[in-house]
Design a protein around this nucleic acid. Structure first.
Lengths: 239, 239
DNA sequence: AACTATTTGTTCGTATGTATG
DNA sequence: GCATACATACGAACAAATAGT
């Protein structure tokens, strides 16, 4: 007898939001397509302009569409890429929901596998990029403003692993670590001596998956542990 | 000479959104806090109610706040959890930006490490849960409607690994795989015979990290390869 | 360069729904 | 039941951006 319907009084804008979202998922609007204009949506959904605008605004906040104004404006379905997971991770850390240790651990888990996959899919072009990055790295090591040069190898590997999700995760963690450690500027030469990437690069180019994974593991093992200690001290002295 | 600042004619609602977002990131509002009411925000920002509403709506779509109505209503800062990365992955797949193969590969990379970490942090409570899940799994194997029982072990491990990001990723991939494979309902008993989790559970409870990782790797290796073939056939026959 | 059409951005006034005390 | 405080919703109007004529 109690099998009556639970009348879901969903908010109108949520309803519109969901329907538009589903339509995009269903491929009724593909990348580059323009959603119906506000006026048309008002007609279709029989709601006020406020409701429509809130719904479309929600789509924009979700990264699904981009809104342009003007005569040829409207809400255009955006090319969604793997940056969404990166920015989600970014938010989680800066809201204090994710610890530095978790970031390091995640790097330690993912990057060796990324190196393995990169070794599996290594092409001559990738090899060239890796060698160039490593040469540059050794060259500019004395200039402290070129810290980012030391990340190039990691970025190249992330792109070369041919798994965009894992690549995005790796790059995101890398980004967070360097953002955080930038604050207390450790002696990078000590914490990250030159030549540390050499074995990784060699293994990847040789397409030796096991060696690539092992080399990355060893690299991150010493490197991240040092960083975690430094970060720990830094946090303690600031509280 | 060209070092003038570009006059950013940002939209008012974007401006309000950004300022509120920054305030939350800065800890000026912590979890459970109520943002100022619409009226107050109108006063502070000197904008219309619509602008304020769109901005707050954007915060809600970003998962930062939850809006409640009524006398004690308002926009409350939400406990942001790792669901955001899960939903980002969800969107990416359903938009066709992520392939089934990438999902499987990601699982294959992450879950063995999750098993390793779970073994490292295994408590008597976890052990109990694992054994219960495995017993239930063996018991209900003949009922096809209980497919989800076979995922319990994975979920428990994801929660037990004490790295929320890796746990969320693992659960998200698991969820996607079972959502997808549900469509073509393969003969699960063949593809996923009973007792496959046994070695994993034993290793985790014994806190043998290497064995846990290896057992999970072996489990996923055969399992995912089969699934990928089935999915491949399914997709071909549907196009 | 000026005009026009279209579309989003912003504001205001008003009314309604919902939860608390 | 009533008052209060809040979000939700509607509609009309004007502002601003943009492309085409």
């Amino acid at each position: 007898m109690s099998s009556f319907k639970p009348i879901k009084q969903k908010k109108a804008s949520e309803e519109v939001f969901e329907q538009l979202r589903l339509a995009i998922f269903d491929g009724k609007f593909v990348v580059g397509d323009k959603l119906p204009s506000e006026r048309e949506l008002i007609e279709s959904f029989q709601v006020s302009r406020t409701v429509v605008r809130e719904a479309v605004k929600g789509l924009e906040a979700s990264g699904l569409v981009q809104i342009k104004q003007g005569a040829t404006g409207g809400a255009f379905v955006k090319e969604m890429n793997f940056e969404v997971v990166s920015s989600a991770c970014h938010d989680l850390f800066f809201l204090g929901r994710m610890s530095f240790d978790e970031i390091c651990e995640t790097r330690f888990v993912i990057e060796p596998q990324v190196a393995r996959l990169a070794a599996r899919h290594c092409t001559p072009e990738i090899a060239e990029q890796l060698l160039a990055a490593e040469a540059e790295e050794a060259e500019v090591l004395q200039y402290p403003e070129t810290v980012h040069a030391r990340q190039k190898v990691h970025v190249i590997l992330a792109d070369a692993c041919e798994n965009r999700l894992l690549g995005a995760m790796a790059k995101s963690m890398l980004d967070l670590v360097s953002n955080i450690t930038f604050k207390f500027e450790p002696d990078t030469n000590e914490i990250h001596p030159p030549g540390l990437h050499k074995r990784i690069v060699e293994a990847v180019i040789a397409r030796d998956e096991d060696a690539a994974e092992a080399a990355m593991k060893e690299h991150l093992g010493t490197f991240l542990e040092l960083l975690q200690n430094v970060e720990n001290d830094y946090r303690k002295s600031n509280s």
